[in-house]
Amino acid sequence: MTIKSRTVAIIGAGTIGLTLAWHLHNLGYRVKLIDPQLANLIQAKSSSFAATGILMGCTYKKKKGRSWQLRKRSISLWPQWCASLQRYSENLTYRAGILFLASNKFEENWQRQMLLDRTGIHMRQWDRQKLDSLTPEIPKSISSALFSPEDGQIDPKGMLASICLQIIDKKIEIIPKRVKKITRLKDLWYLQFECGQSLTSHWSILCTGSDFSVPSSESSNSFETQRIRGQSLHLQLANTISNRWEYWPGSVIWRGNSLVPISNNEYWIGSTIETDNRTKGSTLNSLLNRHHIVPEWLKRSNIIKHWQGIRSRPMYRSSPILQLVAPRLILATAFYRNGILLAPSTVEWVLKCVRIVDRRYSYEAG
């Protein structure tokens, strides 16, 4: 059986599902992209649109284990991905460098330890004098910061829009339906939709969040996920002065907040601050004013747009879940905050898995 005769059903059209669809199609697979939001692909809004696109790999707190390896690999692949995506979108923006602000002694000690531990990575510390050169100003309560030039930020909206246009251009089959059940049928996977229709595929790749589970008969490793509300804001400074964000790096992070300068007087800010699916009136207030170290210019900023979405975080195990749970059935889900960061290493892992399994099947069939 040739690659062109093999069908891959990708369930879920967030960052991971979209990028996998694009790459598998380029390899010659017949891809079916399935998500109930896809009635209009350009207007579909997955939780990925609530991301700020932070690519934080080098400054990850851990320095070993699978998560660290995935981050390192993604950071090394992102320049190549950016170059490829920018061929299709002139509006796609990559911003180099992340600055981590220290608001207490614990964070200052972490930064010093990071400088000692990360040999071979070009990080450096910024003192208060260096921070004072930034406009608009950094709060005086911040005593120092750690700058990582190899990390950065990519515009998630531009990235996803670019991939969506490619999916449309390549005429990848889009199925705007919700999968109700998936079962094994000899060497195929049988997908049943809530509307009563069905299809079969050689591969099924589950990239959904917490609204779909693997058939218990197909997985000995059960898992649970927690629903996390993620959100981001597009803001505008109240006082428009030229050369705003002068000397600022690609993004700034402090106490779980990420701030990304995007134009002369505009910026994004994002954070994950809820653990359920309820909308709370104080959500935006908490995001703008948390930790009592927010500068006045941020508090006075005007909200242009607000994105939010429910993300999935694994319980009792590390994120993400990447697993071949049955023959030609892959789980690639529960990325929590890091779907955009880990997209390159995840795509690489899935493609390697698909190639190995299909090579074995072809050998056995021959």
Rank of each mutant, 00 (worst) to 15 (best):
S263Q: 06
T15S: 08
P344W: 08
T19E: 03
D117L: 13
I182R: 01
G339P: 07
L185V: 04
Q125F: 14
L188W: 06
P149L: 03
T346E: 00
L55D: 01
N265M: 03
D276W: 06
G196C: 14
L41T: 09
R300E: 14
Q43I: 12
T283D: 06
S144W: 00
T119N: 13
T275G: 13
L298T: 12
S258G: 02
L99P: 10
I11S: 09
N40S: 10
T135L: 06
L101S: 09
Q231E: 15
F223C: 10
A343D: 01
Y363T: 15
W297G: 00
L33A: 14
I11D: 04
P249G: 08
A96M: 11
L33T: 11
R66G: 03
F223S: 10
V347S: 04
R317D: 09
S201F: 10
M123R: 03
I273M: 12
R30W: 03
E90I: 06
T19Q: 14
T200W: 15
H292N: 15
S271K: 02
S219L: 00
Q166F: 05
A9H: 10
Q197T: 11
M123G: 04
K72W: 04
R229F: 01
G339L: 10
H292K: 01
W268H: 12
I11L: 13
K299Y: 07
A9K: 09
V214T: 06
K305S: 08
T52V: 13
I172Q: 02
I182D: 02
I253W: 05
R360W: 09
S222Q: 07
S201V: 04
R66L: 14
K299E: 00
E108A: 03
E194F: 09
H25L: 02
G339F: 03
Q192S: 12
I273Q: 11
S219F: 10
A326W: 02
G366Y: 09
G97D: 01
T7N: 12
S84T: 15
R118Q: 12
E90R: 11
C82L: 06
T279I: 07
I269F: 02
S312T: 12
L115Q: 05
L322C: 08
I310Q: 00
V179E: 07
L99T: 04
S258F: 01
A96S: 09
E246G: 08
L77M: 03
R6S: 12
A332D: 04
K186R: 09
E108H: 01
T119S: 11
N239R: 13
S242N: 04
K61I: 15
L331C: 15
P295Y: 02
S47N: 04
R360M: 11
S48G: 15
H25A: 13
S144C: 09
V357I: 05
S144T: 05
N26S: 03
K64C: 13
G366A: 13
A365K: 15
